[in-house]
Nucleic acid binder design. Structure first.
Lengths: 137, 137
DNA sequence: TATTGTTATACTCTATAACTATA
DNA sequence: TATAGTTATAGAGTATAACAATA
């Protein structure tokens, strides 16, 4: 192989780990014909019926402009409805098909997350989430 | 705000933390007119003079095809030379400007990584890298 | 046969600017 | 004035297929 000092950098390992796990999750969600962002949006709508696209975007750090094609896909797939709140806002709600797909996605994600945690040695496990949150929030 | 179960998932926190830190590092490297992948490639070349593009790609998980425009940029910027090894391979080496830029990038990255570690509470610090490596390798 | 370097292409994600309409 | 939704666009990262030349 070769000399490679990069893996000893936490920031580098963070990106590699995120890329590897994201690719794996994406592959599994593809069987539900969902992207990761789709699944996140669906889960947030299911927890917050009537929420607006802007609020979802703020929570997930997705730009308003980038919510447009995402929601259009979910609507075209018959997974969400958009019901007028007032003249400028629309509340997002799951259709029956959306509730079913969301339940499947949520089960898939929870299985995946449990597998991720299982890969980490027990003595490191309780430290992972707090360490990540310190880097993110 | 809203109900949001996602941050309690390590995989989700991993992606958010990686995105946040990657954006921050990208902003700093932009002052050196380098992308993260540029900096990684330059550091690997500096540690392994004469390495091939294919070997760098394997190490960084960058497809051969995607190495082409990356290396072309570095060559156009006068940071690397490509010297023939045999009829089909070329060894990558840093120019004098490349060595200087790489030293600056490396100092910047090391400062950044030290800052990242400092954000994590001391009791979590020693667990971060081992946990990430378990998720990646 | 396997590998290196390359071209071409396409998709996803992300970011910005600008516009309309409404609160 | 600030916010919601939208359009258009561009940059960056990534993935695949295919090809020529060489090991």
């Amino acid at each position: 192989m070769m000399r490679d000092p990069l893996p000893s950098f936490p920031g580098y390992a963070l990106r590699r780990a995120a890329n590897a796990t994201a690719a794996e999750l994406a592959g599994r969600l593809a069987e539900l014909e969902l992207r990761q962002s789709d699944a996140s949006v669906l889960i947030l709508i299911s927890e917050n019926p009537g929420v607006t696209a802007s609020a979802i975007g703020r929570s997930l750090d997705i730009q308003r402009a980038n919510m447009v094609p995402l929601l259009k896909r979910l609507e075209d797939a018959g997974l969400i409805d958009r019901v007028p709140i007032d003249g400028k806002s629309r509340g997002l709600e799951l259709t029956q098909a959306g509730r079913e797909r969301t339940a499947a996605a949520r089960a898939l994600v929870e299985t995946f997350e449990a597998e991720l945690i299982a890969r980490v040695a027990p003595e490191h496990r309780p430290h992972l989430l707090p360490a990540l949150e310190a880097l993110w929030r």
